[in-house]
Nucleic acid binder design. Structure first.
Length: 227
DNA sequence: GACCAGGCACATC
DNA sequence: GATGTGCATGGT
């Protein structure tokens, strides 16, 4: 199987969805509990979820550090911050003009719907909250689910590029490959449990970062046994 | 200098 | 409904 980065992967058997719990245990045994998301407060997690869109996390950290230095990592302060200044602070995260706008859109939503209160937001009905988040310009399915899962501890499984890449390689993918189809594969195979969804996605990212990118031939990939 | 990284909106077919 | 494109920095 040839990947987008040009490497030839070993041909895999078809991984079954019913094996996903065991795959998790394998990853967990290799990487240990990941204890995600890296963020001090729910608001920081939400901001990080927008900033990390198609960006390397190391660069997101720089942007967040800038916001902290300016004491701008609170809803009220960030909302008052001029768009240009916000863009300048988050510059290292890339697409800074776009993302500054997206943060502003999110803040408007956050204040209009919940008065800038995480607690009030968390009291919203789960499915309704997801719909509302998806209505915010700049918040797509992955960002919405990241916010729901990692900022608000609600059971929504996050699908990202790593997930699609890794499990496609093991030939486990939905017939249609839209976000919701992918999500269904995992939620149908796993118990609905926030802590599991949380750590499973974190394990996938750990795997994606350390193996499928830097060691694409997978001599020592923890999932090699499933090929 | 090319390629990639924890996406999304929008245009076009 | 699928596919293509713009957005942009910083590391490899």
């Amino acid at each position: 199987m040839k990947s987008s980065n040009g490497f030839i992967y070993p041909k895999s058997r078809v991984l079954k969805a019913s094996e996903l719990p065991r795959v998790y245990r394998t990853l967990r045994a290799k990487f240990g509990s990941q204890d995600w998301w890296p963020g001090d407060t729910p608001f920081e997690v939400m901001v990080g979820a927008i900033l990390t869109q198609n960006a390397a996390w190391i660069n997101v950290e720089k942007a967040i550090r800038n916001l902290k230095t300016e004491r701008a990592l609170t809803p009220r302060v960030m909302q008052k911050l001029p768009l240009k200044k916000l863009a300048r602070l988050i510059r290292p995260a890339g697409y800074f003009n776009v993302k500054a706008g997206r943060l502003k859109h999110f803040l408007s939503f956050f204040f209009e719907e919940y008065g800038g209160s995480i607690k009030r937001m968390a009291r919203e009905d789960d499915a309704m909250l997801r719909e509302k988040l998806l209505g915010v310009k700049g918040v797509g399915p992955e960002t919405a689910d990241s916010i729901l899962l990692y900022a608000l501890n609600k059971p929504f499984f996050v699908i990202d590029t790593y997930t699609k890449r890794i499990f496609s390689r093991h030939r486990l993918h939905p017939w249609k490959k839209q976000y919701g189809d992918w999500q269904g594969v995992f939620t149908r195979a796993l118990p609905i449990k926030t802590s599991l969804y949380n750590d499973y996605h974190a394990q996938i990212v750990a795997l994606g970062k350390h193996f499928c990118k830097t060691r694409p031939q997978c001599e020592d990939c923890p999932l090699r046994q499933y090929l």
